[in-house]
């Protein structure tokens, strides 16, 4: 078995998800007694860092035409790299890049793809991968029967094993096809923390009564180093931007800590946040369904509780 990991980059640096995918591949290699090689595309620095995540060899296709993200080109490069090392297993992160490339590669190689894996494959006599289905309301164990297997790992879902070491980088020369797609512009929503990558998320719903009351939510998020999110109706009425909407029809997130303020906890909302490690709910209604999904809760008025919470967090930080 030979494993290839596609390590994605942004602004010339490998992403957090790339390191995670690399580590997943390295752990799988250890489990099966095979080798794990990473592939990096475009102008990227700090590649040797992959060594700490268990990767000893990196193929670097540094052609600058790969700096902008064209899934058709990247797919071609990954397929060539897989051929050159005889890879039978290819690993991606199930993030925005992974979602646009992994399925293409699966079709190209006629390979089975399990997207959004949350554990290492079970390789005892087969190849079975666990993933969340029904928007986190259940799990499925998916068997891959094709010769080549592709797995994309759900961000923030595996325990990382970090060690020492530096990866050897090998230049990978490959001809790049032309396509009909041109990247015109990349806009980061803001310099703030991205919602899908944040460790802590502070989220609020219709219980906040109006957009003018979000000051305290932003302040709490700021104190915690958290990103902000909201329920769907709040985004729909325009109290908050659409890119904050989490749930079944918005973003699905899996932070370490999710604080839900004035959100009832409808099943469609929970579908996007039930992967969070710790959930805190603040709601005036003790019967709000969200409490059933919560680890910690306060039955109380957000307008009283949140200012106190901000003070308490400040105090904790001052002590540290």
């Amino acid at each position: 078995m030979s494993i290839l990991i596609y390590a994605d980059s942004s602004n010339g640096k490998l992403t957090k998800n790339a390191f995670e995918a690399a580590n997943y591949g390295a752990q799988l290699a250890q489990q099966t007694g095979s080798s794990a090689t990473a592939l990096v595309t475009g102008t990227v620095s700090g590649i040797e860092e992959l060594g700490k995540y268990g990767i000893s060899k990196v193929l670097h296709a540094s052609d600058a035409t790969l700096d902008s993200f064209d899934p058709q080109k990247i797919t071609h490069v990954i397929a060539e790299a897989a051929k050159s090392i005889g890879a039978d297993t290819i690993i991606f992160s199930h993030d925005y890049s992974g979602k646009s490339v992994a399925p293409r590669l699966a079709a190209k190689l006629d390979a089975g793809l399990v997207s959004g894996a949350i554990a290492l494959p079970n390789t005892d006599g087969g190849f079975v991968v666990k993933k969340a289905v029904f928007s986190g309301k259940a799990f499925a164990f998916v068997e891959v029967n094709s010769a080549t297997k592709i797995v994309s790992v759900l961000p923030n879902s595996i325990e990382k094993k970090i060690g020492e070491g530096s990866a050897a980088i090998e230049a990978f020369a490959v001809e790049i096809p032309t396509t009909n797609l041109k990247v015109k512009e990349v806009r980061k929503e803001s310099t703030e923390l991205s919602l899908t990558e944040a460790d802590i998320v502070v989220s609020a719903g219709r219980g906040l009564k109006g957009p003018e009351n979000w000051g305290m939510i932003e302040e709490l998020a700021h104190e915690l180093g958290a990103a902000t999110a909201c329920s769907r109706p709040v985004a729909d009425i325009g109290w908050r931007p659409h890119h904050e909407h989490v749930g079944q029809t918005g973003f699905a997130i899996r932070p370490n800590l999710y604080i839900a303020i004035g959100i009832s906890g409808a099943i469609q909302h929970l579908a996007g946040v039930n992967g969070s490690k710790v959930i805190v709910v603040i709601n005036t209604d003790a019967e709000a369904p969200f409490f059933k999904a919560a680890d910690y809760g306060i039955v109380g008025d957000a307008f009283e509780v949140v200012p106190k919470l901000i003070e308490a967090v400040k105090k904790l930080k001052a002590q540290q």
Binding site: V133, K137, A138, E143, S146, A293, G300, V305, K308, A312
Partner: peptide
């Protein structure tokens, strides 16, 4: 090329720990 072997429901969440509204520092 892929097939679902079986499903599993998530383990039931343990009960939510409630903290009094006037004791936010405890949270």
């Amino acid at each position: 090329v892929t097939s679902i072997k079986n499903f599993e429901l998530p383990p039931a969440k343990s009960a939510c720990k409630l903290v009094a509204a006037d004791n936010v520092e405890e949270l």
